[in-house]
Design a protein around this nucleic acid. Structure first.
Lengths: 191, 191
DNA sequence: ACCTGAACACCGTTCAAGT
DNA sequence: ACCTGAACACCGTTCAAGT
């Protein structure tokens, strides 16, 4: 009896989201997929948005766990950073609906999301500082450099997902390649 | 009698979107705001999404007109590019709902959007080439450099709009500043 | 060619009731 | 404490009918 109803609801919502986009995530469909009635969600969440916030929170928690494994793989902080940003892009392209949900519109239930995002940001800044002291990155405000990396990775992924933008050459400006380009420039810029 | 029903509907939809987000844009509300019945939209658009596509198309057309004015202001292409990217960010922050609509989910009615985006992309690439030949930008695939600029501007704006990301220092990593940072690095990287 | 009122199936949410 | 069936207001879409 490990799977409680609350978890079943979150899992069902995530699955429906992946398969059919936000339009497919109705409380009735979620209830049916979880084997409960169409309004059982209200015993666990204040409303639909809070159920979706739980889906996003779980996703960010998994992301954090994945990232934790990356840090041990590399000797130099710059390589960890690059790997993290590539992972960010790969995640967005592999799970577009969860990516868009996570960074979408939130009216409430955001505390947990904000905390996860804050932790990730703190970690990024520490890595930038380390890369700077290891001589792989130019000086300058570590928070701004971290934000620049995240902005590029996020924007590259989001623009790639908006198919109507990049009809041109495909492999020509793929999102992971753009992350590589940014890092190449940042390395050169160090001296 | 210049204002036809079709234009009234698009205008009403844009206004409702700005004021109350996507949830406020119901065909009934649009009809009422335009002074027609709740289903008059179906005489001008196949469905709700095509009405929204018309809103997005109009927005991109206005963007293109704004950009056209920028090009004459600067002697050097690099300054035009920077101004364009700053304008992109400012537009996203000033009209977040239209920005998110434009780069959101589209199932159909995308041809016009794709064309506008394609034109903008072509123009960007030409400017990158010009900046390179003027000695303000390093060599390398102009399409990739243009895509890097757009990705950074887009990501900086989108992450700023997701309020739950940047609880930390505010002016510390503002989106326009990140665009400046990218251009600073790209200038340095040329040598 | 453009518009309307009525109707349909569907959705989020509430509520009284059950265990 | 958790769940259900019925009901409410609302939504996108369709349709027959009007000019």
């Amino acid at each position: 009896m490990v799977a409680k109803t609350r978890d079943l609801l979150v899992t069902a919502a995530a699955r429906l989201l992946d398969q059919g986009g936000p339009a497919a995530v109705t409380l009735r469909a979620v209830g049916e997929a979880a084997g409960v009635s169409h309004n059982a969600s209200y015993k666990h969440f204040a409303n639909k948005e809070e159920l979706l916030a739980a889906v996003a929170s779980r996703e960010l928690a998994r992301q954090a766990k994945t990232v934790a494994g990356i840090e041990d793989k590399h000797a130099r902080a710059i390589d960890t950073l690059k790997d993290m940003m590539r992972g960010y892009v790969r995640w967005a392209l592999a799970r577009p609906e969860r990516f868009r949900l996570t960074y979408g519109r939130w009216e409430s239930g955001t505390e947990e999301l904000a905390e996860s995002a804050g932790n990730a940001n703190t970690q990024m800044i520490a890595l930038v500082k380390a890369a700077q002291s290891q001589g792989d990155l130019a000086g300058g405000d570590p928070e701004r450099i971290a934000a620049l990396m995240l902005a590029t990775a996020h924007g590259a992924a989001d623009r790639a997902l908006s198919g109507h933008l990049s009809r041109a050459g495909k492999g020509h400006a793929d999102p992971e390649g753009l992350v590589d380009d940014l890092f190449a420039v940042l390395r050169i810029a160090k001296g």
